[in-house]
C-alpha cells in the first residue's frame, strides 16, 4: 500500500532532451505555454583568457521537474476553494472544475508546478498520471526518458534505492513543502552557486 508516491530524477545523466516534457503534453493534450513537466537548463561560470587560449569554467546540468506531490502541499493549503486535494497515496490533484482561476497557488508553489491554462481558464498541473498508476502502469514521463533518468514509486522505496537528496541548486529548501522527490545530483551542481549559475532557458520553462 503506497503511502506517498514520488519521482526520482537522475540529474547526473539528464541530457535536457525534453522527451519527458512532450510525452506529458501529448498524454494530457496541453496547449503550448502549459507545461506540466518542464526541463530547466542550469548554466553558469564563464571563460578566462590564458595567453591566447580561452579556458572555460562552465558548469551546466538539467533539472526535469513536474509536480512533487509534496507531503506539505502549500498549493492545497493556499487554495481558497479547496480545489486541490491529496490522495491517500500522496498524489496531489487539482480539480479544475472547482478552480476559480485566482492563481494564488501559482505564487505559492516554489517549484512553479501550477500552470494556468488559458483554454480552461483554470490552473492545472501534473497529476502523476494517476489513471495509469491505478491500472498498474507508469507515468508517461518516466516511461519516455531515453536516458532512463526518471523513476517513480513509493518514497520509502525510492529512498532505499536512491538515497535522500531532495534538493540541488536552485531548488528551494525541501523543508518548505516536503517534496516527494529524490535527486541524484549532477557533478556540477555542487559548484553551481559559486559559479553564479542560473536557469539559462527561462523562456522554455
Amino acid at each position: 500500500m503506497v503511502t506517498q508516491y514520488g519521482f526520482f530524477f537522475n540529474a547526473a545523466t539528464c541530457s535536457g532532451c525534453k522527451a519527458c516534457q512532450v510525452a506529458c503534453k501529448d498524454r494530457n493534450d496541453l496547449e503550448p505555454g502549459v507545461l506540466w513537466r518542464r526541463v530547466y537548463e542550469v548554466a553558469g561560470g564563464g571563460w578566462e583568457k590564458k595567453g591566447e587560449v580561452w579556458v572555460p569554467s562552465v558548469v551546466a546540468y538539467n533539472i526535469s521537474m513536474a509536480c512533487n506531490h509534496c507531503e506539505k502541499p502549500v498549493c492545497g493549503l493556499a487554495c481558497p476553494v479547496k480545489a486541490i486535494s491529496k490522495r491517500e497515496d500522496g498524489i496531489v490533484f487539482v480539480d479544475t472544475g472547482a478552480c476559480i482561476g485566482c492563481r494564488y497557488c501559482e505564487w505559492a508553489c516554489p517549484y512553479t508546478a501550477l500552470r494556468f491554462d488559458a483554454r480552461t481558464n483554470t490552473v492545472s498541473k501534473c497529476n502523476f498520471c494517476y489513471d495509469a498508476i491505478d491500472a498498474g502502469g507508469t507515468p508517461s514521463c518516466v516511461a519516455s526518458c531515453p536516458q532512463r533518468a526518471l523513476d517513480f514509486g513509493d518514497m520509502a522505496e525510492l529512498r532505499k534505492k536512491y538515497g535522500d537528496v531532495r534538493r540541488i541548486f536552485p531548488l528551494p529548501d525541501p523543508a518548505q513543502t516536503e517534496p516527494a522527490l529524490i535527486i541524484k545530483p549532477h557533478r556540477d551542481a555542487a559548484r553551481a552557486e559559486e559559479r553564479a549559475a542560473e536557469v539559462a532557458n527561462w523562456e522554455e520553462v
Binding site: 507531503e71 506539505k72 502541499p73 492545497g76 487554495c79 479547496k82 486541490i84 486535494s85 491517500e88 472547482a98
Partner: peptide, 12 residues
C-alpha cells in the same frame, strides 16, 4: 505539517 496537509484530504 501532516495535520495541515490532512486538513484538506476531503474531496467534495
Amino acid at each position: 505539517s501532516k495535520g495541515l496537509a490532512a486538513g484538506f484530504r476531503r474531496r467534495d
